[in-house]
Measured scan of single mutants.
Amino acid sequence: MATDAALRRLLRLHRTEIAVAVDSAFPLLHALADHDVVPEDKFQETLHLKEKEGCPQAFHALLSWLLTQDSTAILDFWRVLFKDYNLERYGRLQPILDSFPKDVDLSQPRKGRKPPAVPKALVPPPRLPTKRKASEEARAAAPAALTPRGTASPGSQLKAKPPKKPESSAEQQRLPLGNGIQTMSASVQRAVAMSSGDVPGARGAVEGILIQQVFESGGSKKCIQVGGEFYTPSKFEDSGSGKNKARSSSGPKPLVRAKGAQGAAPGGGEARLGQQGSVPAPLALPSDPQLHQKNEDECAVCRDGGELICCDGCPRAFHLACLSPPLREIPSGTWRCSSCLQATVQEVQPRAEEPRPQEPPVETPLPPGLRSAGEEVRGPPGEPLAGMDTTLVYKHLPAPPSAAPLPGLDSSALHPLLCVGPEGQQNLAPGARCGVCGDGTDVLRCTHCAAAFHWRCHFPAGTSRPGTGLRCRSCSGDVTPAPVEGVLAPSPARLAPGPAKDDTASHEPALH
């Protein structure tokens, strides 16, 4: 009773807030009518008042009428009001819900409408889902798969039609296919003929059939049928067999079959498995989609049935006599038709004709302190090069084509190399640097090759510096006499390219 009084008091307290929050009759008014909170006449009256005075006034009048009803109607109103779709449509209802007392429970059932309790003993237990329907569909599909699609060729003596089998029958139906081979029951999904010589313990000319048996419980189990008994694959494991010639990621696949039913060829011909030897223990289905393919039931050349050999690369099948050149017997292992072999060759040939990528240039590290003349020119003028003790990398590039010797140069053309002071002394051009340390401070000019250098860098042994005729380390061993002091540049003949010694390969005349 306390809860009923509290709900009535809360409705009177929030009546105006609810009326202002509800700006549309749908969905709240319609939901109240659906849950029998508002009768039909009051529903029509509220809609009429909404058209006349507006939605807030109409709902305020409806809530005032609701306060005169019993506690069950008020409880049902609060339940409908706080439904998710009403809270989404009328956003101003959320503060009312947040301020609702926590001790007021809106989930209690309506009085007088409590459903009768059902004894637990009368409640049926839930049924577990079964796979009976899938099993029945598999039974119905198996006879259809064994139905012949056409008439065999005159040369083929193997013609068999499976008798119709009602689904209610649980007995196995067997077809006489000759040579002791028996087909599987209607619940078998796949059958492959297997030679009895590969099964340990088999006697006589009995041949087993590799099947997948579907049981009534819905589970499946792969086994071997020899005669009327089934054997699990673990009985046929043979770890010492060295003649297993397995197909790549293979499961067994029928390579020879008669049109209309699988079996042995007439005249004692023995149908073979995809792999010879003992049956392997793992009978998992292969991951290669080509091995799941269903080959055609007629020859791809003459479009006739009979004894066919199936290609492992495509769905086509052929007569042995229709092949070019014809085959006398079934080859062992994987067999592919000429079209598949030709496609494989065409895929391999473009790969062989692809040009080989060019090898990157060989990189040879230079000892610290040495650099090529090109690196000396590329440096920024007026700045010493940083990191001189790091190992430089010199790339061996292809030799350029031989060019004509340089033409003779006048001494005026070499004027930018040297600057003559007032006393006739050779001065260095701006930006000249030593080729060893890279520093341009207090550098000297070689009178023979006009290269800038430090005496301490080229002659670290402490050799005394002569007063005139300074030469760098590369030119100090040259027998050519030094030019007379005061000459602007060496003779043009000295600039012609010539053979250089091994220790002077990195010091070429550089223009500054």
Rank of each mutant, 00 (worst) to 15 (best):
I96F: 03
V256A: 12
A19P: 01
I209F: 08
A261R: 06
V80N: 00
L63D: 00
S239E: 07
P115E: 07
A264V: 11
G267Y: 10
M194D: 00
L128A: 13
T130H: 05
K159W: 14
S107H: 14
V20I: 14
S168R: 14
K159N: 14
P266R: 07
A141C: 09
A138L: 13
D98C: 02
T68Q: 00
G268N: 10
E136I: 07
T16P: 01
A265R: 07
P129I: 03
Q94G: 08
A205C: 10
I209S: 03
R12E: 00
V104L: 08
F26G: 00
A264F: 10
F230V: 05
A193Q: 15
F43R: 02
W78D: 02
K131A: 03
G219W: 10
E136W: 10
D98H: 14
A21G: 02
S234T: 05
M194E: 05
A5W: 08
E45L: 03
L81K: 00
V199Y: 14
V123E: 08
L29F: 00
E207C: 05
L7V: 01
T3N: 07
P266M: 14
V22S: 01
P233H: 14
R8H: 00
L49I: 00
P143L: 11
R127S: 08
G155H: 15
D76H: 03
K164A: 12
L81N: 15
L47G: 03
S195L: 02
L175V: 05
Q182I: 00
E136P: 15
P126Q: 01
L10C: 00
L97N: 01
K114T: 13
A31V: 01
A145L: 13
L175P: 04
S187K: 08
A121Y: 15
A160T: 04
L93D: 01
E171L: 15
I74N: 00
P115C: 09
P109E: 02
G263L: 10
V38L: 02
G204F: 01
P124Y: 15
K164C: 02
V22T: 01
G180S: 09
V38R: 09
S196L: 04
S99L: 05
G228H: 00
V192P: 06
P254I: 08
P109W: 02
G208M: 02
I224A: 04
I96C: 01
G260C: 10
R190V: 02
G260T: 13
S220M: 12
I96H: 11
R92D: 02
K245G: 07
P126W: 02
K245T: 01
S107K: 07
E171M: 15
S217D: 15
A31S: 02
R8T: 01
K50S: 15
K83W: 02
A138C: 15
F100K: 07
H35R: 01
P126M: 02
P125G: 11
A142G: 13
K102D: 07
S24R: 03
G155N: 02
L177K: 11
S241V: 08
K253R: 07
G91A: 03
S99K: 15
E136G: 07
T147A: 03
P124M: 15
R79V: 08
S24L: 01
T151A: 14
Q108N: 05
S241R: 04
E270K: 06
L87V: 08
G204C: 05
W65M: 01
E17F: 01
L75H: 09
S71D: 15
E216D: 06
A202D: 06
V226P: 11
K253P: 03
D70P: 00
P115W: 03
P109D: 10
A144N: 04
P163C: 15
Q213P: 05
L7C: 00
K52Q: 00
S239G: 11
Q213I: 00
L62P: 00
A193T: 12
Y90T: 04
R12Y: 01
F100P: 10
L28W: 00
S135K: 14
R247A: 06
D238Y: 12
G268A: 10
D34G: 04
A134Q: 11
L87Y: 01
Q182Y: 02
K222H: 06
A202N: 15
D70A: 01
E88W: 07
F77I: 02
P56L: 01
D98S: 02
W78I: 02
P163F: 09
A140F: 15
P266W: 10
L32Y: 03
M184R: 09
Q94R: 15
D198T: 15
G180W: 01
D98A: 07
A117V: 03
S241E: 13
L128Y: 14
I18Q: 01
S64G: 04
S220Y: 01
P56W: 02
E17H: 03
K221D: 06
L81H: 00
Q157P: 11
K164V: 06
E17I: 00
P154M: 01
A246R: 04
L273M: 13
E207Y: 02
Q157Y: 14
P115A: 07
E136L: 06
G178C: 13
G267V: 12
G208D: 03
A170N: 13
A145D: 05
K83S: 02
A186M: 02
G218C: 08
G112W: 14
R132G: 02
Q262N: 12
